[in-house]
Amino acid sequence: MKVSHKAEEILERLWIITEEGGDNAAHLEALSTTLDAEELLELQQMTYIEVKGERVYLRPEGREEARMTVRRHRLAERLLMDVLDYKGSGGNERACEFEHLLHHGVDTKLCTLLNHPTTCPHGKPIPPGTCCEEARATGETGVVALTELKPGETGEIAYLATGNEKKLQKLMGMGVLPGSELVLTRRFPSYIFKVGHSEFAVDEDLAKEIFVRRST
């Protein structure tokens, strides 16, 4: 049974208030809805929520749906802000529209494409889907930014994600090229890594733009 867009928004907020905020229920006002709103009735019919007085409770039956709604929203944020480069509130608004498209396995595909992110761009956790757990279980590491490596870990440079052409040329000129093996030796105060016999220091901003395939 498919939940309507408006109902999805309610579930999402309810999840944030109860699961992440630690409250046991949310006030109608906090959900920006009214007692007689269509979406509220819809959710009650599905037994996803329960309304007592002016407070809305998330029922165990609704937990999974709410969790996945939050997941879809935050995956959408990742896609829009990181990949499609929408910044600020514009990105957030579009994510609100975009999330409703992530049904029927599209979310799984997107999650894999983004290499199973664990947080949204605002730092909130993305509830893991089955794809994330599978990837974890099989030890699939995928491609991560240099900032994800621990000192001593090695990886192969997969790609350089910088939008700045000069930076890219500089890195390539120094020999930081896709396909080269890299060893991270230090993360603080700057990122230090070795390629071949050469050692380089880069700051966090640049380290975020060097993507490596972790060696296992």
Partner: peptide, 11 residues
């Protein structure tokens, strides 16, 4: 622009 830092560390 924010300054960026990259440098080769010679032995």
């Amino acid at each position: 622009e924010r300054p960026m830092f990259y440098m080769e560390i010679p032995p």
